[in-house]
Simulated scan of single mutants.
Amino acid sequence: MAEDKQTARFLSSYHWTKERDGFGGYSGISLTPNGAGFIIVSDRAHLIEGTIFRHGDRIIGVRSAEMAALNIPDDLFLDPSVQDTEGLAKDNQGRLYISVESTNRVLCRDITGVWTALPDHPGLRALPHNQGLEALAIDGDGTLFALPEFSESLQVPFPVFRYRQGSGWDVPMSISRNEGFLPVGADVGPDGKLYVLERGFSGFGFSSRVRRFDFLNGYSFDGETLLTTEPRRHDNLEGLSVWAATDGTLRLTMISDDNFFFLQKTEIVEYAVS
């Protein structure tokens, strides 16, 4: 299928398979600056770490450790039986941030392994169940950004929540809502801009879009569309990590959530942005 005119150039798609209980359901990914090492979170509160191997611009293999439970204390969930972990971000100090969609809160694991919940915010509390915080991103200064897949109507933009140590949460900007796409992943690239992965769904399958935004307080805007795919071009892409290759191009690495459904697959997809 032909894709819309766009800035991003397709590099490769890798179908990742493992004979392992609980494999799949991956909703967030964070890569090391060189794009090789990864941390991936599943929506069942597990992490998996490993390495992506490439030949030129093409992914040729993935090696990973065993999946590890996040071991988040039960008292950080409203319902410990539902640990719907979706967004993932890791700061320069090694702290790990996870968004829990079912309760619309963000949890932090410090470098000693201790979990705490970030403070609450009225806008987060107002998000509906299972339509909440899907995407997390963090910049080089440790400022955290969280995006829900919900806005109040088809004409209302998506809020971008920001958390800063010592200042707490605010909502400095929003991004437009259109064409049936909802935010599911995000990252702050090496260029300091916000990249947002969005998902659309029709009866024919999933489509994906990536937009890039400058940080402008008080603005709601469309950003720059880098990538739009036709339905079924890729699987259910939910996680996004942005990094710089040695040739200076930015790379968009995305992973799909197979929903533990046999007709779907775990797919790692890469595009280049000049």
Rank of each mutant, 00 (worst) to 15 (best):
N178V: 10
D43N: 00
D187L: 01
E198T: 00
Q165F: 04
V41T: 15
V114Q: 12
R95W: 00
G22C: 05
L263H: 09
S207N: 14
R177I: 06
D120Y: 03
Y14A: 02
F215P: 04
L226V: 02
E238V: 00
P73L: 03
T32P: 03
D222A: 13
L31V: 09
S99T: 05
D120S: 15
L88T: 06
L47Y: 07
S207I: 08
L76S: 05
P190I: 09
Y97K: 09
F213T: 08
D120G: 05
D79K: 12
D222P: 06
I72P: 01
I60C: 11
D247L: 11
K18P: 01
D75N: 14
L118M: 03
T266D: 01
F215D: 07
A69D: 14
T85G: 01
L127V: 02
A186W: 03
P119M: 03
R9V: 15
F38R: 02
T112E: 13
S207K: 11
V184H: 06
S256N: 05
A244L: 15
F53L: 11
N178M: 08
H121W: 11
H15Q: 03
S81D: 14
R109Q: 15
A137M: 08
A65W: 01
G223N: 10
D222L: 09
L250Y: 12
I138C: 02
L144H: 10
I39E: 12
L240M: 04
K193C: 13
F221M: 12
F145G: 05
D235C: 08
L144D: 00
D4M: 10
N236A: 06
V114A: 13
Q165M: 08
R199H: 12
R20F: 06
A186I: 04
T253A: 11
L70W: 03
K265A: 10
V242W: 05
F38N: 06
A65L: 13
F158V: 09
P190V: 08
A137K: 02
W169G: 00
V100N: 00
G123D: 07
P231G: 11
L78V: 12
G50K: 11
V273Q: 09
L216K: 15
R232M: 13
F158N: 02
P159H: 04
N34R: 13
E152I: 01
G142S: 05
G22W: 07
P128Y: 05
W243I: 09
D43I: 03
N236E: 07
S220Q: 10
Y26M: 09
I175T: 03
A244M: 13
N104S: 14
H55E: 15
E267Q: 14
S274F: 03
E49R: 15
E230F: 07
R20V: 12
F77N: 02
R58Q: 14
V82C: 05
R199I: 05
R212I: 01
R9E: 13
R44Y: 14
T228V: 14
R233L: 06
G218N: 04
F262G: 01
G203A: 13
G61K: 03
G113N: 11
F260I: 05
E86P: 08
I138Q: 01
M67F: 08
V156L: 01
G56A: 07
E152F: 07
T228H: 02
P159T: 07
G185Y: 05
S30D: 12
K193E: 13
R212G: 05
G239E: 02
D191Q: 06
L263F: 12
